[in-house]
Amino acid sequence: MSNKSKKATSGATDGGQQKLAKQRSHDYQDYSAFKVVLFYCSLIVFLPVVTFFVLKGFVLERFFTMSDIKVNIAAAVGAVAALHVSLGVYIYRAYFGGSKSSKED
């Protein structure tokens, strides 16, 4: 009788541990997905702004003969190009990386 009750309690704790492990793996997956999304979103938001001002400074310093308007245009085009490259990388990752993680589930 005591054995039976022991078995039952051990089974219950096993089930609880499995549930806990499942919950932990879900939490881990959510956390890793959050990290990836946060990285790409901050890349897409901050990369063009940084590119704009860095390009403006460097182009101004290197090609001093360029007019002010040309420097501004080059910096703006560079910022937009950097923006689209990072968006393309994010879509690529979401399309190919996302399907792999859903297969693992």
């Binding site: 790409y40 938001v45 923006l83 968006l87 990752r93 979401a94 993680s101």
Partner: peptide, 15 residues
């Protein structure tokens, strides 16, 4: 599990 794919419209609106 589709969060990563479905964030794309929000990112494009931010652009």
């Amino acid at each position: 599990e589709l969060i990563m794919k479905s964030i794309i419209p929000v990112v494009m609106a931010g652009i």
